[in-house]
Design a protein around this nucleic acid. Structure first.
Length: 464
RNA sequence: GGUGGGUUGGCGGAGAGGUUACGCACCGGAUUGCAAAUCCGUGAAGACCGGUUCGAUUCCGGUACCCACCUCCA
């Protein structure tokens, strides 16, 4: 059996992966808060876990993996958007506006991640569907002396959990020293965090032993992972920015509520995304969503390829140059594999992926297969990484009408060449090239052409 | 201030204490009416300063610079 190695944030080491139950490998990925379109950075953990799940299914079997990714649909940003619509004159009640917002955002998210070739998880729980489990867990924490109610809130008592801070390598005292923490007067310790908070009448709320209120951010993941994967499961992940406080708090809640269990054995964290060397932020004007890229005509498969070029534990830079390189490589590989049947994935590829998801190394294995013209294995291996799938291939097949136009122009050029009129032949070639079509003369006299990055259908039509 | 990570050839980007990463670009050759594509081939690296070692880009320490987190954030 393939030995999978993963870098575990909890131990800060690359370790052999040993599932709790090889017939049911269980993973949890922190999913989006559904208040707006997914930005490009949101795609990174999704793609990391997508490759991981494909690898685990390959090694342990298609039915031996359970993948959970949540939707956070209780959040003040969602409430704010609903409030905005209400104030803009919507006749719907606030609860309906909130539901409307989360529903449309989830549909966008699905569409955008589908476009990147990411497999849907086995379960996509929503926080609002697990409120009773959260309340039960909070009651357990209070009973165990790890949480306390104060002024309609329930807070987790970080001093009650000696390992608090272990995941992120901080001590409670260090954090207090330098942090700008909001210190509510009813907190026993400034680092105590909210498990439950009261809701005013204009906010969504649920009845609880502490009055009408809503859960804090972190408790949902603890409750939902326990419900769907058990108190102990294999892998938990997300962006490195979630390491603290979100994952630290999840560990505190889950381990105190289930002291006999291990919670997540392996913690995987991906590094952040940059754009042209800078942090993606609204103020720098380089903030964009997955949908923005798709709408600009960047195929989802190209976006996926660019992400896979960089190891998940390193900062990844989205650049125009990479986009072009990815597109050119994919076109070449799609040409090589056109009409081929998928064979067996190469062992070099599996080994690269099994070595802490070394997707860059795996792409090198694909380059090797392409170079040797091994179309069957290239196809199977690329598909292991979610590339060269039928689902993602539409962008690389050309419009028939346009193809016919190009063919007619190319035939005219061929006639000119045959007649020895190289001046005319070269002119036609230059015109096509300016419109993004590269012509290639072949020995067999067939017409062959490729698009380049400046491909422009209107310009091509204008030539004829 | 605290914590964590990074610095590899023109660019992107991996692994490994000693043997070619790989891709793109470049250069040389084959091929071509000329190109393109393709094939063959040559170059080119590991921030800086020390240490360990027969040998370090790879391990350890220090310095510089960069980034992230500590506040909603994947």
């Amino acid at each position: 059996m393939t030995r999978i190695r993963l870098t575990n944030t909890r131990t800060r080491r690359k370790e052999d992966f040993t599932p709790i139950d090889p017939t049911d490998v269980r993973l949890y990925l922190c999913g989006p808060t559904v208040y707006d379109r997914a930005h490009l950075g949101n795609a990174r953990p999704v793609l990391v876990f997508d490759v991981l799940v494909r690898l685990l299914r390959h090694v342990y079997g298609d039915d031996a993996v359970t993948y959970v990714r949540n939707f956070t649909d209780v959040d003040d940003k969602i409430n704010a958007e609903a409030q905005r619509r209400k104030e803009a004159g919507s006749p719907l009640p606030l609860e309906a506006l909130i539901a409307e917002r989360t529903e449309e955002t989830i549909a966008w998210y699905h569409a955008d991640m589908d476009a990147l070739g990411a497999l849907r998880p086995d379960h996509e729980p929503r926080a609002t569907g697990y409120i009773p489990q959260m309340i039960a867990m909070i009651e357990t924490l209070i009973a165990g002396g790890h949480a306390y109610a104060a002024k309609g809130h329930v807070l987790f008592d970080v001093r009650s959990y000696p390992d608090y801070g272990k995941l992120s390598g901080r001590s409670v005292d260090d954090m207090i020293a330098g942090a700008r923490v909001e210190v509510a007067p009813f907190k026993r310790d400034p680092m105590d965090f909210v498990l439950w908070k009261p809701s005013s009448d204009d906010l969504p709320g649920w009845d609880s032993p502490w009055g009408r209120g809503r859960p804090g951010w972190h408790i949902e993941c603890s409750a939902m992972s326990a419900e769907l994967l058990g108190d102990s499961f294999d892998i938990h992940g997300g962006g490195i920015d979630l390491q603290f406080p979100h994952h630290e708090n999840e560990i505190a809640q889950s381990c105190c509520a289930h002291p006999q269990a291990s919670f997540a054995n392996v913690w995987l964290h991906n590094e952040m995304l940059q754009v042209e060397g800078k942090k993606m932020s609204k103020s720098l004007g380089n903030f964009f969503t997955v949908r923005n890229l798709l709408d600009q005509g960047v195929p989802g498969e190209v976006i996926r390829f660019v992400f896979l070029m960089t190891h998940y534990r390193k900062p990844m830079d989205w650049t125009e140059a990479k986009r072009q390189e990815a597109e050119a490589t994919l076109r070449k590989w799609r040409d090589v594999t056109r009409g081929a049947e998928a064979g067996q994935p190469s062992s070099a590829l599996i080994e690269a992926l099994a070595d802490d998801l070394n997707t860059a190394g795996a792409l090198a294995a694909l380059h090797d297969l392409a170079g040797r013209g091994d179309a069957e294995r290239l196809l199977a291996s690329a598909q292991m990484m979610g590339l060269l799938t039928d689902q993602l291939g539409a962008w690389s097949t050309d419009d028939e009408e346009l193809g016919a136009i190009i063919m007619r122009i190319a035939l005219e050029r061929r006639a000119a060449r045959k007649a020895g009129d190289y001046k005319k032949a070269d002119e036609i070639r230059a015109l096509l090239e300016a419109a993004g079509v590269k012509l290639m003369d072949t020995a067999s006299d067939n017409i062959a052409w490729q698009r380049s990055s400046n491909f422009d259908p209107e310009a091509i039509k204008a030539i004829e």
